[in-house]
Amino acid sequence: MRKCKCFTNLEHEEKWLNDMAGRGWRFVRKSLFSYEFHEAVPEVGRIKIDYRAFVKKEDFEDYRALFEDSGWKHIQGSKSSGYQYFKMVNDQGSEDIFSDADSKAGRYKRLSEMWFSISLSFFPIIVALMSTGTLKPAALLDPEALYLTPGLWEKTGVGFWRAFLFETPFALLRGLSAWLLPLVIMLYLIFAFKANRQYKRSQGEGLSD
C-alpha cells in the first residue's frame, strides 16, 4: 500500500509510522512524499527518525554501524538523503536514539539549515533567468504581459474573444512558470522556518515526547 503524506515535524512522522505498524502496516520505503507499506503482523512501532546527511561513504557506514550495535536497525535512508529511519530491534538498547534534549533538538537544526540552503541555491537561478530575459518580473504582476499576440488588446468582439481564449492556456503556462520558482523558494523558506521553530521549542523541552 502507498500513502502520500508530507510532514514538517519529525515527531508527528514517527508517531504516524508507529501507528501504522500498530495497525499491521510495516513501513518499507519512502520516496519523496510517498510511503510504501507492506501488510504485516501488528506490532508496537519503534521507529525513530534522525536527520543527517553525509559527504563520505565511510562516515555514513560508521554512523549506521553505531546505531546497529546499539540495537537500532537502519531501515530507510541513503548517504545524502538526510532523513534516516531506524527501528528498535533489541530491547536491551536505549529507549530513544537520543539521550538528551539538546541532541534531539539538533536534528531540527540540521533540517532547517538544509531547507534554507536549498532555497538560497535557487536565487542565482532566478537572477540568471532575469538577466537573460527568460523570466520577466513584470510577468509576475501584469497578466496582460503574458499575452503575446500582436494587437490583441485592440481587437474587439468575437475576434478578440477567439484570440484571447486561444492564447489563455499558453498565457497561464507562462504565468505559472514565472511564479513557480518564487513559490518553491517561499515553500522551502517556510519549511526552514518551521524546522527552526521546532528546534527552539524542543531545546527547551525535556526528553518526554
Binding site: R52, L66, F67, S94, I97, S99, K104, G106, R107
Partner: peptide, 11 residues
Amino acid sequence: VRMAAGTLYGA
C-alpha cells in the same frame, strides 16, 4: 551516564 547512539554520534 547512558548515552544513545544519535547523541553520541553528534558528540
